[in-house]
Structures are given as C-alpha cells and as structure tokens.
Deep mutational scan, measured.
Amino acid sequence: MKGKVVSYLAAKKYGFIQGDDGESYFLHFSELLDKKDEGKLVKGSMVHFDPTPTPKGLAAKAISLPLE
C-alpha cells in the first residue's frame, strides 16, 4: 500500500503514516527495509508498506521509500 508520513519522531524511532485507504498506521524504524532511508522519513514523504493489524491497532510493516 502507498501512504504519506504524517509524523516521525527520530529520537524515539516511531511515527505515523496515513494510508491511501485513509487509515492511520504506526510506523517504527525497525520496519524500514533500508535503514539509510531514515533521514527521508519526514512529514509528507511518500512510502510503500504492508498494512498489518496488531493487537494495538494498525501497523506499517516492510516500509520502503519510492525510487527517486
């Protein structure tokens, strides 16, 4: 699924993505496929991810940034 980063707290390594389906997904650095892309996780960045339901809500897994 595609989505847009709505927040990312680099110090805490987490944030949120708004998916194309309108839902909010929890984003964690550990799910970023290329850790070098962390600096690109800023508000408004477009990402691809696997939407995954968890006991705490919806989460983004296997997060990647589109090729530039």
Rank of each mutant, 00 (worst) to 15 (best):
D37G: 06
D37R: 05
L58P: 10
H28T: 07
I63C: 04
K61D: 02
L33T: 09
E68R: 11
K2D: 11
P51K: 06
F16D: 02
F29C: 07
F29I: 11
G57W: 04
K2L: 10
I63P: 02
L33I: 12
T54W: 06
L27M: 11
M46V: 15
E38R: 05
M46Y: 12
V42R: 13
D34P: 02
L9E: 13
K61R: 12
K56I: 07
P51D: 02
Y14S: 06
A59K: 14
S7M: 15
G57R: 04
G44H: 05
H28W: 05
F29K: 06
Y25P: 00
E31G: 06
P66I: 15
S24K: 13
K13G: 11
A62N: 15
K4E: 08
D34F: 08
E31T: 03
T52W: 15
F49T: 00
G39F: 12
K13N: 05
H48P: 01
L27G: 02
Y8C: 04
G39T: 12
E31W: 07
G39D: 13
M1G: 07
V6C: 12
A62F: 10
H28M: 07
K2I: 11
K40P: 02
E68Y: 12
K2E: 07
F49E: 01
D21Y: 03
D21K: 03
P55H: 09
K2Q: 11
G44N: 07
D34H: 09
I63A: 05
G22E: 04
G3F: 00
I63T: 03
E38I: 09
S64V: 11
V42T: 11
I17T: 01
E23T: 07
K43L: 08
V47H: 00
T54R: 06
L33W: 04
S30F: 09
P66T: 14
L32I: 06
F26P: 00
S30Y: 09
S24I: 15
G19Q: 00
K40G: 07
K56W: 12
K35L: 08
K43W: 10
F26H: 04
Y14E: 06
K2W: 13
E23I: 11
S64L: 10
V6P: 02
L41Y: 02
P66S: 15
I17G: 00
K12A: 09
G39K: 14
G22C: 08
P53R: 14
P51N: 04
P51I: 08
S64F: 13
V42A: 09
G44M: 04
A62V: 06
F26E: 03
T54H: 08
L58E: 02
A62D: 08
K4F: 14
S24C: 15
F49A: 00
Y8P: 01
L9I: 14
V6Y: 08
K61M: 10
L9Y: 15
P51T: 06
S30C: 12
F29P: 06
S45M: 15
E38D: 04
A60M: 00
P66W: 15
L33S: 06
G44C: 08
K36Q: 11
K43Q: 10
D21Q: 03
I17M: 02
G39L: 12
L9K: 12
Y25T: 00
D20P: 06
D21W: 03
I17Q: 00
P51V: 09
L58D: 03
A11N: 12
H48W: 14
S7V: 15
L41D: 01
V47Y: 00
D21L: 03
I63W: 00
L41F: 03
D50S: 15
S64N: 08
G39R: 13
A11P: 08
K12E: 09
P53F: 13
V42G: 07
A10K: 14
L32Y: 02
Q18A: 11
Y8N: 03
E31F: 09
D34E: 08
A59I: 15
I63Y: 00
L58R: 10
K61E: 04
Y8V: 06
E38W: 07
K61C: 10
K43G: 06
K43P: 14
L41I: 07
F26W: 08
S7G: 07
D50M: 15
F49V: 01
V5Q: 00
L27D: 00
A10C: 12
L65S: 05
F29N: 04
K36I: 07
S24Y: 14
L65E: 03
D50A: 13
A11Y: 11
G19T: 04
S30V: 08
D21S: 04
P55F: 09
K12F: 10
L32P: 00
P66D: 15
A10W: 10
P66R: 12
D21P: 00
S64W: 15
V42K: 13
F26C: 04
I63H: 01
A62E: 07
M46G: 06
D21N: 08
H48V: 14
F26Q: 03
E23G: 08
S45I: 15
V6H: 08
E38C: 05
Y14W: 12
G44W: 04
F16H: 04
L27C: 03
E31K: 04
K56D: 07
A60W: 00
A59G: 05
L58K: 10
K35C: 08
L9Q: 12
F26G: 01
K40N: 07
H48T: 14
E68W: 11
L67M: 13
T54M: 07
E68A: 12
Y8T: 03
K4T: 13
F29Q: 07
F16K: 05
S7P: 00
G3S: 00
K40I: 05
M46N: 10
V47G: 01
L58T: 04
L33A: 07
P55I: 10
L9S: 15
P55T: 10
V6N: 06
D34C: 11
S30P: 03
V47K: 00
I63F: 00
L9T: 13
V47N: 01
F29E: 04
V5H: 01
G15T: 02
E68V: 12
Q18R: 14
M1R: 07
K43A: 12
H28V: 06
M46R: 15
V6K: 14
K40M: 09
D20F: 10
I17A: 04
D50P: 01
K40L: 10
K40D: 04
T52A: 13
F29H: 08
E38M: 06
H28Q: 07
E23M: 13
L33P: 02
V6T: 12
E68H: 12
D37V: 08
P66L: 15
F16A: 04
L58F: 08
S30W: 08
G3A: 02
L9M: 13
K12L: 12
Q18E: 12
G44Q: 04
K4D: 03
D50W: 15
L67T: 13
H48M: 15
G39Q: 13
K43S: 09
V6A: 09
K61A: 07
Y25K: 00
P55A: 11
D50C: 14
A59Y: 12
K13P: 00
K35I: 08
V6F: 07
A60C: 03
K12I: 06
K13V: 02
G3T: 01
V42S: 09
L65M: 11
Q18I: 14
P55E: 10
A10F: 13
L32E: 00
E23A: 11
L67D: 13
P66G: 14
G22S: 05
E38L: 07
P51A: 11
S45F: 08
A10N: 09
K36H: 12
D50T: 15
P51Q: 04
G44E: 04
